[in-house]
Design a protein around this nucleic acid. Sequence first.
DNA 1: GTGAAAGCGCTAACAT
DNA 2: ATGTTAGCGCTTTCAC
Lengths: 335, 335
Amino acid sequence: MAATMKDIARRTGLGLATISSYFNGGNVREKNRVKIEEAIEELHYEVNEVARGLKTNATKTIGVVIPELNNTFCAEIITEMEDVLRSHGYATIVCDCRTDKKLERDAVEFLSRKRVDGIINMPVDTEGNHLKKFQKTGKPIVLIDRKIQEISCDSVLVDNEKAAEDAMRVFFQAGHRKIGIIGGPEEISTAQERLQGYRSAYEKENLPVQESLIYHGDYTIQGGVKGLEKLVADNPDMTAVFVTNYEMTMGAVIGVNELALKIPEQLSMIGFDNLQFARACNPKLTIVAQPTPSIAREVAGIMLKRLEEGDAGNTERIAEKLDAEIIMGKSVRAI
Amino acid sequence: MAATMKDIARRTGLGLATISSYFNGGNVREKNRVKIEEAIEELHYEVNEVARGLKTNATKTIGVVIPELNNTFCAEIITEMEDVLRSHGYATIVCDCRTDKKLERDAVEFLSRKRVDGIINMPVDTEGNHLKKFQKTGKPIVLIDRKIQEISCDSVLVDNEKAAEDAMRVFFQAGHRKIGIIGGPEEISTAQERLQGYRSAYEKENLPVQESLIYHGDYTIQGGVKGLEKLVADNPDMTAVFVTNYEMTMGAVIGVNELALKIPEQLSMIGFDNLQFARACNPKLTIVAQPTPSIAREVAGIMLKRLEEGDAGNTERIAEKLDAEIIMGKSVRAI
DNA sequence: GTGAAAGCGCTAACAT
DNA sequence: ATGTTAGCGCTTTCAC
């Protein structure tokens, strides 16, 4: 068995309170400090955080619930977030709910039983039913990427409408008028916003939106393949296509290859996220890149802030909104 | 505060042991079962796994330490593993050590303090120093992908030498003789094995290996870019290149694009992992694909097995070895 | 500054 | 089958 504080107490002849105080930054006489440290060394003592957690009612553990770990956007954010949280002593339990509302709910319940101190969530259920019970515990919730009207909590979002408008402007300035869009699931806020950006861009050009140019995808690779095929089939006069997340971008590129289309000669394209993939495309893809490291750091920062302010969490809800960036490649032809 | 078993005991008039027994599959009189379930419902009771963990000395939590979450191979394995473990009631704490030995050691210590029930590790430190202390606890360790001589524990590996030989055979059969390789870090076992496969393949053809065709990369995208550039520059007569992990494959493709080389007319290529990326390449890339879902399920299965057999872990060490598969594309030209 | 003792929520041994 | 009780390893009053 591992050594306990009792063992240290016995060995040093000190009381439990002194040892505990030593570990919690209290004042301990120099002589005793040395004794304690020797004992720790010899007994290979390590604080038992489970016991501490039971007593303090805090596990120093954050739960993260995301739709797909196996998704660059999510993976990048988690990598960075976990880094920040761990450096503050917090462990991160990641639950991948496979874009399934039922599994998402299960995950939150699971984390709740594990008594995590807070939950970070990129929500699948846009009504937030999965979070309502957890919220009653008063523990902090921070939402990433997608907002939920019904849940009052902090969130870190990207200005998707602006990002989409920016991308569309690139097309318009290059002379494109018939621009297709491979959008996301209609109930997801990011998809709504990106589509809204697409529509506003047309409006600002005083051009009508042609509904056949809009494809509602599902944010998966296969969805991107299908979307591209359908848009191309339905719109012989389409000269460009805007793809609204990374997985579908990969799918659209696969579609282009399998249809043996030439980019940008036959079709111009702007994709989403993952600069490295964009560079690996030939010609290099122009993309909208979301600021994943900033998102991650913002989220982790807000969570840590809420954690340390404790019950005083009556302060205003934070709703950070970050800007995406266009990274130019050679996949848009001037016509 | 959340309800406790005491609250349920009070409300039902039963003793603590009965409630506990109810939750642990013991026999409880039908009448009482109903009463308990009503109380649970009304009080919104949830087992406190922290308290349970303190008592049982088991946290139902597995620690996972990997070099880069932000790496498809790792992400795919973790997704699948976490799924299996969670369905058995285990939480997974993932620590990304950024391919840094120091951070890897920190991660293991962190998990040790968190009292995880076992550790799954894709090791960076090939001497396993980071695991020695944890191993003394007697808790199970399962290694993924890379073996460590000094540590006696279970492992799930891929037959890398065979995988590399298979890939090389594709080149030889297409008539290639001057084949470059972008290998991994020399101290990592997978890299050694893949390189060994490359050498054996040449041997079996009774052809000498030309050292200038060997590049030692670092398993990163940027390393792949550099490797390709150097091999091309140093070997004007090279007709094919074998890239030995996914990140470097992406890098090599970037390199090819930036040098404006034509695949497979000017250079044939076989990459590693990630079928979707291979499909997104034009022409479709031929790749060696590792069986990530099988690896993940094997690892999770072994861990669960060790966990349930408890101290009886004196059984033989398991060393699973799985086969990779070649997925043909159009990136190898017959000459 | 330090020691004694209570108690966090649970499980398990023992008694009934 | 159920109740009583001790104790897992820690923190935290409360004395001294």
